[in-house]
């Protein structure tokens, strides 16, 4: 079972990322959970959202404390929130940033795998807005292989309708542009 924690801010659509990923996994015949951090959501305030993906039924319903994957949608959260908290030593940290993996590793004191991508730039160019929730899905898929890129098509189309094409394009770009680096 793979556990993922997403960091974003209220209004940035982290809950949508979680939903898209869960739906795509289920679309593949897997089992998945997608859930927000329970409680009120305030625009702009840091928040987390979660996924579990598994090949068979998921029984655990408690919070996620030791994720295998952490995704950071907003570069401004680094330093504000301890995004690497509880992340498994062998886990993967996927960050929307213009910094290098080495810099991120130093700031967070995280020695595991780090993937970086300038998702804000991609989102601005492809979607005309710095909303990185779908873009970062591309980076997550490339860095982890947790689902297939194609499996997102149906949920993204269902969710974004006319804008689905642009979102798919943005996330494909992130898929191609993400830089993987193993610090060790």
């Amino acid at each position: 079972m793979i556990e993922i924690r997403w960091h974003g801010r209220g209004g940035q659509g982290a809950v949508t990322s979680v939903e898209m990923l869960a739906l795509a996994a289920i679309e593949e015949g897997k089992y998945a959970q997608g859930f927000p951090s329970f409680g009120p959501e305030r625009r702009g305030a840091p928040l987390a959202a979660f996924n579990r993906v598994n090949t068979h039924q998921i029984k655990v319903r408690s919070n996620i404390y030791n994720p295998d994957i952490v995704v950071v949608l907003d570069p401004g959260l680094i330093g504000l929130v301890n995004v690497a908290d509880g992340l498994k030593a062998k886990g993967i940290l996927i960050v929307n940033t213009t910094k290098t993996a080495e810099e991120i590793s130093r700031i967070l004191n995280f020695k595991g795998k780090i993937a970086t991508v300038d998702a804000t730039k991609i989102a601005r160019e492809e979607l005309g807005a710095p909303i990185t929730n779908t873009t970062m899905l591309g980076a997550v898929i490339k860095a982890t292989g947790v689902i297939k890129l194609d499996s997102l098509k149906v949920p993204i189309e269902h969710r974004f309708g006319k804008l689905a094409g642009r979102n798919m394009k943005a996330l494909k770009r992130a898929y191609n542009e993400v830089k993987m680096s193993n610090i060790n």
Partner: peptide, 10 residues
């Protein structure tokens, strides 16, 4: 509430 109602699952 939440643990079930807010959960996306199969």
């Amino acid at each position: 509430g939440f643990q079930l109602t807010h959960m996306i699952e199969a």
